[in-house]
Design a protein around this nucleic acid. Structure first.
Lengths: 229, 229
DNA sequence: GCCCTGGAGACATCAGACGTCTAATGTTTA
DNA sequence: TAAACATTAGACGTCTGATGTCTCCAGGGC
């Protein structure tokens, strides 16, 4: 048949998608309260029940938190991120980190195989920022630059799923744990290790890239209390 | 204050949890239709709106599929499994498999470090079943035994999150892709490779376990059309 | 300054009604 | 007989409107 079927996409799903977009796009920032239900009903032109079905879907996914008598707040910017938050709540730190490291290793191997000149230039730029921030003792900036670098490696793997997973699992870690470690005397530098990783990727040496990542992670882990691997 | 607050856990969340249990416990089998809304309203003692909020939460998570005019069907046995299904829909097969392989490698390393005698005995039992099924040309049984073996390795890693993720990502693959490949002439044997993995795990040789897994996976991938790694 | 009390705003839940879709069955027609 | 059409029962989709309950916060009493 050729007459593309009418197929009206369920209103509630449409609502879910619109809410989701508002969150993903940053229109509703993290931790902020979203507009009250009556207002959203008007904006979206749907009934309360339909709206609430959309909200509940995102709430179960961990993206929204509904506080009775108060309002609804944004807690995560994507489903997968919400799932990662939940994983952090329900599993040992160590377990989550091991999974992240598994992804990290794979990302490095693929990046060494696939990264192009633009990717590598971007990595070098981020490492430079990281170095400057460290010299300037700007912790926040340093954490950001460090994380951006690792994300770029994941992105350069060419595997979108891997990039997404890595970003979600790592984000919580970087946001909550890194700052603590820095205060505990972690030197945070590993300058050489990061440079070596870029070099291995630029050279297309997969095994060297993986070895470098492992070395970095083991050093990093040595600063974690009671954690193996 | 001492009077432990009444703490009425949001009805809709309670409903979500009850539905979820019915699915996870197997009371509502995969692919089956669940009771119609009016019946569930009566069983749970809630209004339709509340019930639907609970259903929508699980539907968005990929565990349920609601078909207007027909009914609601069970599509996945856990949120993470639902997410994996979605990932399979939205990403390249190759990307998903790479992620799964990253987990596979990590699982093997950890299993070599932590597996106890009971784990190893279980692995050997499963391999024996796998061998018998192959000899008897019972494909279904063979696929089951093969998958059980890999799951056991993941479980032996001692990392519950890893086990869960691995199970979810791999399940879809084993259910849908493996059968196709077998029909295409895949010899599916790899008997030696699997035995070698158990041997490495039993010996506690992490590097050998990882190397064996990589060898197996590469051989396996060679049967996949147009896929790298 | 602290505690208590209300009020306002926001989410929670219910009840009932009607629309629309799907699948199955029955009926007609070539 | 078999294909095409018509009907119907069951199921989900959405709306309306009312009431309950909780959180926050400002204002009054001590």
């Amino acid at each position: 048949m050729t007459l593309g079927s009418i197929h009206r996409p369920q209103l509630a799903d449409e609502v879910t998608e619109r809410l989701r977009e508002a969150i993903v796009s940053g229109q509703w920032p993290l931790q902020e309260r979203i507009p009250p239900e009556p207002e959203l009903m008007a904006q979206l032109g749907v009934s309360r029940g339909t709206l609430r079905e959309g909200i509940k879907a995102l709430a179960h996914a961990g993206m929204l938190e509904v506080r009775r008598g108060d309002g609804t707040y944004v807690r995560a910017a994507s489903e997968i991120h919400g799932a990662a938050r939940k994983a952090y709540r329900e599993h040992e730190d160590q377990d989550v980190l091991q999974v992240r490291f598994a992804l990290d290793t794979k990302a490095a191997r693929l990046a060494a195989r696939l990264a192009n000149d633009g990717d590598i230039a971007a990595m070098r730029t981020m490492l430079a920022k990281r170095r400057e921030a460290w010299a300037a003792e700007d912790l926040e900036q340093w954490i950001t630059a460090d994380w951006d670098f690792h994300l770029k490696v994941a992105e350069s793997s060419g595997n979108r799923l891997l990039h997404e997973l890595y970003g979600s699992f790592g984000d919580v870690f970087h946001g909550t744990k890194m700052a603590q470690r820095l205060r505990n005397g972690f030197d945070g530098c590993l300058e050489a290790g990061h440079e070596a990783l870029v070099a291995a990727i630029a050279a297309g040496d997969e095994d060297a890239a993986v070895a470098t990542v492992n070395a970095n992670l083991n050093y990093c882990m040595s600063w974690m209390p009671q954690s193996g691997e």
